[in-house]
Design a binder for these strands. Structure first.
Lengths: 129, 129
DNA sequence: ATAGTCACTTTAATTTTGAAAGTGAGTCGC
DNA sequence: GCGACTCACTTTCAAAATTAAAGTGACTAT
């Protein structure tokens, strides 16, 4: 039981990161925990993109298994949890900023400023030029 | 036919980037085009991670539709193509470097130096600590 | 008691993926 | 000319992931 449980496709760091974060939802959950003050299951589920409950549940489990997210009960009877990034989870911020920058420059998405908590540039309506 | 053909889930730049690049294979194709001198269908298919031919075909189409990759025939009868990143495609290098850095630090993957074309740090065998 | 909240889990249809085999246009060896 | 081979895909089909919706269990509020 003390063996590493995660098997990777290859030794490549990019492939390993994609094994773990390479889907359409995981980083959006991280984004909401990181910048948008969403910490309960309900808040995370209510984001703009509307992740399905089963996927959110599964993604939170994965992120917890990876040590990127931790939860604590904020209430007993019934138990309710608050999810938060760990220090390791917070290390994803640079990655998120880079992805946001690229999406802004190339796909016309909005630009959020974590310092002020405000959207600095509006998204364009269409897709890429 | 001049309408933007890509529909995004939301205005968020991160969500848009994930709409387009958020899967387990696309960025590996970009990696191979960017750094590993793989430019034919066959070379791309033969990478360490063994992408299936149908997925490679579909991913190349998507990357071309996005203007990140272009191909040119390097031979007629039969026509054979060489795929290469466009300038816009090359703009993904910083992203790739960031992802590699994170995967190295947190998942024990290898570190590749694009300047020298060499692996600077070996991957560890197991998963994350 | 009845309705509502929250954090999920279950179910079932649809979509995506993955592995393998197949296709078409040609080249090579003999 | 014939069979074997290469390359760049496409097709097929089973398995896995996603989606939307409904259901569950433990409570709280009226």
């Amino acid at each position: 039981m003390s063996q590493p449980q995660t098997q990777f496709r290859s030794r490549c760091s990019i492939a390993r990161t994609l094994d773990v974060l390479g889907d359409k939802w995981t980083l959006l959950v991280v984004r909401d925990l990181m910048w948008h003050g969403k910490h309960t299951f309900q808040e995370l589920q209510a984001s703009e993109e509307h992740i399905a409950a089963n996927l959110l549940s599964e993604r939170l489990k994965r992120l917890m298994a990876l040590g990127l997210v931790a939860r604590e009960a904020y209430q007993d009877r019934p138990v309710r949890y608050r999810y938060a990034l760990t220090d390791e989870g917070r290390s994803l911020e640079v990655l998120l900023l880079q992805i946001m920058g690229w999406g802004h420059a190339h796909l016309g998405g909005g630009l959020f400023d974590p310092q002020t908590g405000r959207t600095v540039a509006e998204a364009s309506l269409g897709g890429p030029q």
